[in-house]
Design a protein around this nucleic acid. Structure first.
Lengths: 333, 333
DNA sequence: CTGAAAGCGCTAACAG
DNA sequence: CTGTTAGCGCTTTCAG
């Protein structure tokens, strides 16, 4: 049997409540008894039982992190930021990979609620139906989202300024003299990709009427990028610049370009979005839009923790600025 | 106040213990009362409290995953495998990034033990001192390690066959006709890297006396790979093939080679270890040794779960085969 | 098959 | 400042 608070109490002839107080480090206990208790606890190698504590206090000191896939480097960075913030605040982080599948996502949510997590940071709720979202809300657990849903909601959010990023990409390309540009992106239901596209479109519109802009949609993966690029090269061979919805797609473009004999950046400029680690390693080094992933993860649990501690929590929306990282995949016309 | 098992009991005029039995799905309860209880639970939107259950049963149904850094794609894959296996077995996974810092690692271990995790999968214990390991053992929590320590220990392990991988790299290079080869690696304290080097050395020895093999040690990072490569090009300019201890180092070599005007694979063959995702994207696509990361993560929690359920658990050592993935960074002499 | 009762280990008023 | 007294919500003997 494990040594409990009672054993410690017995060992120094005090009540368990006294031990509890000493261990909790509250004031209102004499220094002498405190150190006596602490010494005894140490000697008996007492290990507090947080689940018992959790039952008594109603707080588990753990948070849930529900993302689509930790293997996506974006989420790995976010997770690290989240984890560091949680660690600093004395919380543990329960990880869930939900693949944006609503059923899997709900199973996780229920499981986490049963474990009484004190809060939840989630990738997104876009895969959830209205009733599922209602269920989530009914659990009354503080939630921070990493994707700002277009509909208003009770959840706090942390996101990057995707719109501005898209616009920056557009003005950069136009500034380089490109007048026949393309945007390769994913499903319009993907809020982040959508905002990037909108920003890009805005830049193009502001660039005057002489610029041609073709938009192609497909899978927002390397594979998808390749396919779209090939289609683009056929339908609009005069295109001189591409804005890919994310870096993965940009790598696909890189591939397709190599196969189709289009040299980057000599005859085709390419800009991505994300600034994944390998962007600097790939050939040619990819010009892209950087979003502060680690900071976003960190901020999301900081907001969450604040929300947990506050009496009547406010829903907060924090958007992080993005930054164009100029490398070698774009060239002036 | 949340609805508890008592509310459900009251609602169908039975005792809480009956509700408990119905919910647990044990036999020895009439189908009629069971369905009545289940229906009431549903109607009241009862959400079981797993921390209370945990206190009563002594099991938390959660596991700890303690790795150095989730941003390392190797661990991201492992984590995903671990998470999938945990999910399938009804366990949650608490993530900890310990950076191989012993203090941080111990803080996590203590915190996880306080939370009464049912088991622990850890990257490695090599950063821990003898007393720290003793402390870990004293907690009597089932542990699976992802790095097989060279010393015997009470922990189960899951690892890749690093020795065989190193040997495969060596025989492959020799088979290509290379007779002046180099191995760039990290600290000899890093058990995996060490085994790879030993395997490589073995292949070289088996290759006869006419092959020259220089070994350089530094940081096992891209940066480190670059520096070692530059040093190598100075000290042994006739080298025709390099085996990098991991892919990150190989990328560093790629960089250094480009800067020093050595073309890969034309004048220099390069082989890595890990088969990180980008290996296929980088230029030239990297020939490397693949280890089944996802499967290793999966296996580690499967072993852990088995260990948890068994009465007198056996420590198990599972080693996964590796595979040479031939791409375009090596050429016959 | 079901109810009663006694905890699991800890916290939190409330007295003294 | 410390002890007493109730629980937190659930499981689990032990009777009936």
């Amino acid at each position: 049997m494990r040594v409990t608070i009672r054993d410690v109490a017995r060992a120094c002839a005090v009540d368990v409540s006294t031990v509890s107080r000493a261990l909790a480090g509250v004031r209102g206990i004499s220094d002498e008894t405190r150190s006596r208790v602490l010494e005894a606890a140490e000697r008996l190698s007492y290990v507090p039982n947080r689940v018992a504590r959790g039952l008594a206090t109603g707080r588990s000191q753990s948070l849930g992190l529900l993302i689509s896939d930790i293997r996506n480097p974006f989420f790995a960075d976010v997770a690290r930021g989240a984890e560091d913030a949680a660690f600093a605040a004395g919380f543990d982080l329960i990880l869930g990979n939900a693949d944006l599948e609503s059923e899997r996502q709900m199973r996780y949510i229920r499981s986490l609620v049963e474990k009484r997590v004190d809060g939840l940071v989630m990738n997104s709720v876009t895969a959830l139906s209205k009733t599922e979202i209602a269920e989530l809300v009914s659990y009354r657990v503080p939630v921070v989202l990493l994707v700002r849903p277009r509909s208003a909601s009770a959840f706090s959010t942390v996101s990057a300024d995707n719109f501005e990023g898209g616009r920056a990409a557009g003005t950069y390309l136009l500034g380089l003299g490109h007048r026949n540009v393309a945007h390769l992106t994913g499903s319009p239901r993907h809020a982040n990709l959508w905002a990037r596209g909108q920003g890009f479109r805005k830049a193009v519109q502001d660039g005057g009427s002489r610029v041609r802009c073709t938009v192609l949609r497909g899978d927002h993966t390397q594979q998808g990028g390749s396919e779209l690029a090939r289609r683009l090269f056929k339908s609009n061979p005069e295109v001189t610049a591409i804005f890919a919805g994310n870096d993965a797609m940009a790598y696909g473009v890189l591939r397709a370009a190599a196969e189709c004999g289009r040299r980057i950046p000599e005859t085709l400029s390419l800009i991505g979005f994300d600034n994944v680690d390998i962007s600097a390693i790939v050939h040619p080094p990819l010009t892209t839009i950087h979003q502060p992933r680690y900071e976003m993860g960190k901020a999301s649990v900081e907001i969450l923790v604040r929300k947990i501690h506050e009496a009547n929590p406010v829903t907060e929306h924090r958007v992080f600025g993005v930054q164009l990282v100029e490398r070698a995949s774009c060239r002036a016309l």
